[in-house]
Design a protein around this nucleic acid. Structure first.
Lengths: 129, 129
DNA sequence: TAGATGAATGAGTAAGTACTAAAATAGGCC
DNA sequence: GGCCTATTTTAGTACTTACTCATTCATCTA
């Protein structure tokens, strides 16, 4: 059975009667939603969310957010139960995703959250039940 | 080499001199940040982010957000290039994560975004450069 | 410049994820 | 009850990810 047939039955159930015209119209509405939802930002948004969707990386961003200052790679090391290499991988992923900025300071590297990262954490905090 | 030794060298580089006391104090500060970051919400936050961090699921939430009304499972079917089973999986994950609510209406199931989902999408939209 | 240290990168691997297909569940209708 | 349809669940599989270890790159210092 095609998804259009099922949609037709659904619209019949909802609005009483429903011919092909109404189905076509609803389909057009839905495809408009789909087009609006699937713009060029979709992929970028998903990669930002993927970057945050990991305990190690999320914790790094949280720590930086709370600290409200830049921190050195070496300061994460005592706090996270993973190798320095894993921390470096995590920091790079977060930076690539636009959630952190990296700054060289001699032989040390310092990281800080971006506005995007802060906005997401604030949204999470503000919508907690 | 321990991470504490590296931290000591870092603090020396930064603040000039640095004895064990200063290292211990900075460590305590960092661990306080860590404790604040790693509260009970961490796990839940990560699972919310994981739920959104997938193109199919993200698109579902976006569509519902733009639609600003509840939609039937059968209305997603023509818009997403995956099986009905995959759509159902996605909807369940999103519901479990607290991003959607599910309502039975006869033999149809209708979904709607939660305040948490809307907050996250708005944060993404508002922080786009 | 050689040696040491901080951090990033590459390769490999164990665990997790996203899908499909098939079976199960649930509602409505005869 | 028996049948049809909408959706969910289960099982299986290809793919992706998150880590560790080893290596490389970069920067300071003696």
């Amino acid at each position: 059975m095609s998804s259009t047939e099922r949609l037709q039955r659904y619209l019949s159930d909802e609005s009483g009667s429903c011919g092909d015209t109404e189905v076509a119209q609803r389909l057009a509405e839905l495809e408009e939603l789909d087009a609006a939802a699937g713009g060029p930002d979709l992929e970028a948004d998903v990669s930002v969310l993927s970057a945050l969707a990991n305990e190690t990386r999320y914790k790094i961003v949280r720590i930086l957010h709370i600290a409200d200052e830049e921190l050195c790679v070496c300061e994460f090391s005592p706090l996270l139960d993973v190798s320095d290499s894993a921390i470096s991988h995590a920091l790079s992923q977060l930076t690539d995703a636009g959630l952190l900025t990296r700054r060289k300071d001699g032989k040390w590297r310092k990281y800080r959250t971006t506005a995007r990262a802060n906005a997401l954490l604030i949204a999470l905090d503000g919508s907690r039940k």
